[in-house]
Write a protein that binds this DNA or RNA. Structure first.
Length: 495
RNA sequence: GGGCCUCUAGCUCAGUUGGUUAGAGCAACGGACUUUUAAUCCGUGGGUCGUCGGUUCGAUCCCGACGGGGCCUACCA
């Protein structure tokens, strides 16, 4: 829709030109867009007050309310309109000749279109078919619509819904419901954190040096300092500075930006929850994560066994399984795979099962093989524990097992939902890991991390032993609703 | 990034094996109708068939490029 309403009326689509003329006439008569309208009730309030009236009843109760006209049925001297509130509640308005008079009825029929915001005042009654209605004493345009609403009898195309979410919200109950669910989930997450004495903080989204994850960043430029800046790919390195500063339990819910592909589980900007807990470790973070998600399900749906679309259920109840990455891989592959297994052997196995991979890191092979052998079978919520050391540069070595780090990934419905760590706090080892990442970057890996001298300096002032956790909010919503990522984001990026 | 598919009225979709005026439902416009529920009935208008180029006597249809969208595939949460 690029047509420009500044054009001469002859150039406009017919229905827009017609509505523009009605707008003019409304302005001549009164006002097509009054600054405020004196409502006394919402649609929901009227429906709540009169839940079960008999057929053809007059209550004597006068109300004034407004709603969007979503259906209209005009007969000669009596007009019916279905008014819809922003919440999706509907009530019928009846405009009859003997109540409003000839002039008002004619103006109503001439000037009110589907989609308009209509203000009505009158008595609450039921019609001869029993429909709860407002028998209108007077009506007023609350806001004139210039473009026609799509017809409400067909589903909108996926593309139209994403590009015109505001229309989707008007015509589709589920669209409104998902927005409400998302808001309630956010509220629940914050409640759980608050109960556990976590502080919500906000750290920079514009960063001089991006870090905290392996991903390609968006670049931008600051004019005043003539400086290259990056949109953050993760808040991790700042949240850890907060821990150095003595903020022992912190979390942040905010947007991350990654300059990578977009599909049904990836959006270039996505909401991320990260949390750090001093004196915690990856076990305590696993418990916290399970609690956050189970509380969210309980608070929003009243159950931890959620009905998704198409009859699928997502059972989030109980204590979630924990499996070792190397052990589960060895079992599924039928051969023992350990951090000592030579890369050549791993490559041979990868070739055998058709995985194309050529990478300097041992751990990359292990993760690829794990995704091939184990991941597809993970349907229950499962913590996958103890990752290879060389692919997790911000995580500390396992306290008992050699060659692995204390990191887990949480899988729900087969995709990665969250990740947790026992954080690396030794500044000397952290520097060595960064140096190794720089070598990767030199060899052409565009996602390798940069050495962040300021962050290392902070670590050198001493960060307490800590657990950390990161969770994709959009993906959490996907788990709780069964929808694709673009349905969980109100206004997803479209080309 | 690679492969395949797709784009027709405000919306949802038919259709044209290349041929004169491209259709439906809803929506719009005119008319009838005081109890409708996607109201009904009669009538009317509305299209750069994604854009540009090519082939052809003739292209919405065939071919190419470009743009939008979708699916599969690779990478990331």
């Amino acid at each position: 829709m690029t047509d420009n309403l500044e054009n001469d009326s002859e150039d406009l689509p017919e229905q827009i030109a017609v509505r523009m003329a009605k707008r003019e006439k409304l302005n001549d008569l009164n006002d097509a867009y009054p600054v405020s309208i004196p409502i006394t009730h919402t649609v929901a309030e009227v429906k709540a007050e009169f839940p079960e009236l008999e057929i053809d009843v007059a209550t004597g109760k006068k109300v004034a309310l407004a709603g969007r006209v979503v259906f209209a049925r005009n007969t000669g001297k009596l007009c019916f309109a279905t008014l819809q509130s922003g919440e999706g509640d509907r009530i019928q308005a009846m405009v009859s000749l003997d109540k409003v008079g000839e002039e008002s009825l004619e103006q109503y029929k001439e000037l009110v279109d589907l989609g308009d915001h209509l203000f009505v005042e009158g008595e609450v009654i039921t019609s001869k078919r029993g429909e709860l209605s407002v028998l209108v004493d007077s009506w007023k345009m609350a806001a004139k619509t210039i473009r026609p609403l799509p017809n409400l009898h067909n589903d909108l195309s996926e593309e139209f819904r994403v590009r015109h979410r505001y229309i989707d919200l008007i015509v589709r109950d589920r669209a409104r419901e998902v927005v409400r669910i998302r808001s309630q989930v956010m509220q629940s997450l914050r409640n759980t954190f608050t109960q556990d004495n976590f502080l919500e903080v906000e750290t920079p989204m514009l960063q001089v040096m991006h870090g905290g994850a392996s991903a390609r960043p968006f670049k931008t430029h600051m004019n005043a300092f003539d400086m290259e800046l990056f949109l953050r790919i993760a808040p991790e390195l700042f949240l850890k500075r907060a821990l150095v500063g003595g903020l022992e339990r912190v979390y942040e819910i905010n947007r991350n930006f990654r300059n990578e592909g977009a599909d049904s589980t990836h959006s270039p900007e996505f909401a991320m929850l990260e949390s750090y807990q001093a004196y915690g470790d990856y076990n305590s973070m696993a418990e916290l994560t399970q609690k956050l998600i189970q509380n969210a399900a309980q608070d929003v749906f009243g159950t931890q066994v959620i009905e998704l679309e198409e009859g699928e259920t997502n059972d989030l109840s109980g204590t979630w399984d924990r499996v070792s990455m190397f052990e589960s891989l060895s079992e599924a592959a039928g051969v023992a795979i350990t951090p000592e297994t030579p890369i050549a052997d791993l490559k041979k196995l990868a070739d055998k099962v058709g995985i194309e991979i050529d990478h300097p890191l041992h751990g990359k092979y292990v993760e690829e093989l794990w995704e091939h052998f184990v991941k597809p079978a993970l349907t229950k919520p499962t913590f996958v524990m103890d990752f290879p050391v060389d692919t997790s540069p911000l995580t500390r070595d396992h306290r008992d097992k050699a060659g692995v780090v204390e990191k887990w990934d949480l899988y729900i419905r087969g995709y990665e939902q969250a990740t947790g760590y026992s954080e690396l706090v030794d500044p000397v080892i952290q520097r060595e890991r960064f140096v190794a990442q720089m070598a990767l970057a030199k060899s052409g890996d565009p996602e390798a991390m940069k050495l962040d001298e300021e962050f290392l300096k902070a670590l050198e002032f001493g960060m307490p032993p800590s657990g950390g956790m990161g969770m994709g909010i959009d993906r959490l919503l996907m788990s709780l609703t069964g929808l694709g990522i673009r349905e969980t984001i109100l206004f997803p990026l479209v080309k």
